[in-house]
Design a protein around this nucleic acid. Structure first.
Length: 271
DNA sequence: AGTGCGGCCTGTCCGC
DNA sequence: TGCGGACAGGCCGCAC
């Protein structure tokens, strides 16, 4: 589920509900994730106040009084704010209880996610320090892409999914943005011209902004949200539409594997 | 340095 | 209906 728009939506929802609240108790039911959760996490978080919640790439940063809790949702993770007596579901692995009877629940069936504590500047953390620019900033532009793609032969789709090039572009939105820009996902990154990169950077921004906006409808109900409402329901132009007609030219959408990932595009519209 | 691949996990879906 | 296998929206770490 979690591509950047969902992480951003989650961030906004949590921030609204939990800011300035103090941790009373933490329950960890499963410690084994992409990295194991620190055994003393409950001790660390106790009595700390949540100052702000921010996002870098797909990492959520919970800035507490004495440090930062970094959470990544991995492939199947989700966070919800619930009241104390809300029945827990399978795979609700971590629960942070705050002093207003609100509880932050981390559910992650596949446990590809991450919950780490750091006392230091989180941006200097090994996992964050090599991240490329945020796609929704001015820093991320066609000019930038053109510059960093020099000498890079890997397919453009893989290229825009590299976190050191630009963060937050996952498989779905890489496919969607390339369709929107009319660029074939197979093209070597260094074969893309500046004008095309301008278009591509704009497409990435637009696709992500739209998705965040759609996720924003979830925001209203964040506290009680049960499922996958929000951006995921929006119409995707190519992702998951193998052999269905292209919305633009009606030709069947092609599915191929690029860098081990399912890729969808229109051979007619994307050159 | 860039690229390609294996691996971490569970859930779901499809074909037999 | 049960079972095996493929696949899933991420990303790290390793080998070449």
């Amino acid at each position: 589920m979690p591509e950047l728009p969902e992480v951003e939506t989650t961030k906004r929802g949590i921030e609204r509900l939990l800011i300035n609240k103090t941790v009373e108790h933490t329950i960890v039911r499963h410690y084994k994730f992409r990295q194991p959760i620190a055994r003393n996490i409950g001790y660390i978080l106790k009595n700390q106040t949540l100052k702000t919640v921010s996002r870098r790439a797909k990492y959520l940063l919970f800035n507490f009084t004495k440090g930062t809790l970094i959470i990544h949702l991995g492939m199947s993770g989700s966070l919800r704010v619930v009241s104390l007596n809300t029945p827990k579901e399978k795979h609700d692995h971590v629960e942070i209880l705050f002093n207003d009877n609100h509880c932050l629940r981390f559910r992650d069936p596949r446990r590809f996610g991450l919950v780490i504590w750091t006392k230091k500047n989180p941006f200097e953390h090994k996992l964050l320090k090599n991240c490329g620019p945020e796609p929704l900033t001015q820093q991320f532009s066609g000019l930038y892409l053109h510059r960093v793609a020099k000498n890079r032969t890997c397919p453009i789709k893989q290229f825009i999914m590299l976190n050191n090039i630009v963060v937050g572009v996952g498989n779905i939105y890489a496919n969607e943005a390339l369709f929107s820009a009319g660029i074939s996902p197979n093209r070597p990154a260094n074969s893309i011209g500046l004008d095309e990169f301008m278009l591509l950077s704009k497409s990435i921004k637009t696709v992500l902004r739209k998705a965040i906006k759609a996720g924003g409808t979830t925001l209203q109900d964040f506290k009680n949200e049960r499922g996958d409402a929000g951006y995921f329901k929006q119409k995707l132009a190519v992702y998951g539409r193998a052999s269905l007609p292209c919305y633009n030219c009606r030709q069947a959408i092609t599915q191929v594997r690029i860098g081990q990932r399912s890729s969808f595009y229109c051979k007619n519209c994307q050159k």
